[in-house]
Amino acid sequence: MFKDITLGQYYKTDSVIHMLDPRVKLAGTLIYIITLFLGKSFFMFIPAAVFLVSMIILSKVPVSYVLRGIKPIIPLIIISSVFNLILTPGNVLVGFWIINITSEGIYMAVFMIVRLLLLITGASILTLTTTPTKLTDGMEMGLRFLKVFKVPVHEIAMMMSIALRFIPILVEETDKIKKAQMARGADFESGNIFKRAKAMIPLLVPLFVSAFRRAGDLAMAMEARCYHGSEGRTRMKPLIYARRDYIAYAIVLGYLGLMIVMAVFGV
């Protein structure tokens, strides 16, 4: 179970998209998301959809995996489309009590659904093809310029990787402690919400104790190896752009240009 959490949604296979530098993928995803908000007409979604589908095909990730990422946001989609449906003023089609469904409302609702679907699917392509470690690496390198403004970019990235690293450990630990307390007759499943919350104490106290212990141990181990933050620190696997990364940038910029032109001419 915890294997899923470690890798996020990462789908392991070898494709061009998997091999791209994480910085390219981060920038590409950001640009893609921005373009979804450039226009107000459905025509804008055609190049976006073409772009997205080509990425999916290139990434070799099975469509079923890609669609899985949509599942958790279905409630969000439903809520936002209901609001759009009933709160958009305009030409009333059906009206009863205080609820008016307008043709503009229907248009807006469908428009938002398409936009959200494109957005989430695009974002999940990023996480499906990039491991969390590479993502944090990419973010650290990509945001390095913020150091000028005294933002501790390296430290933040290190915290993120450590947090990610600890998730599976803590999940495993939770499972162990839970079982140990169940062996002592603890009951986590029955009772009302208050009883259940109280039943969590025997689980949470040892979990926190061990989390702090591990954090202390890790800090000690890092200091013992002379870790001292980003100053003068080099990387074992430095991120270096390859030719394919420049080509990818060119494609993304081409796509961005097309979308801007379409938005400007109001297609």
Partner: peptide, 17 residues
């Protein structure tokens, strides 16, 4: 049953709370 079959896990000290 868990009252009849008592199980002490490995490193049981981590279950104290």
């Amino acid at each position: 049953l868990r009252g009849h079959v008592g199980l002490v896990f490995q490193y049981p000290e981590y279950q104290l709370f």
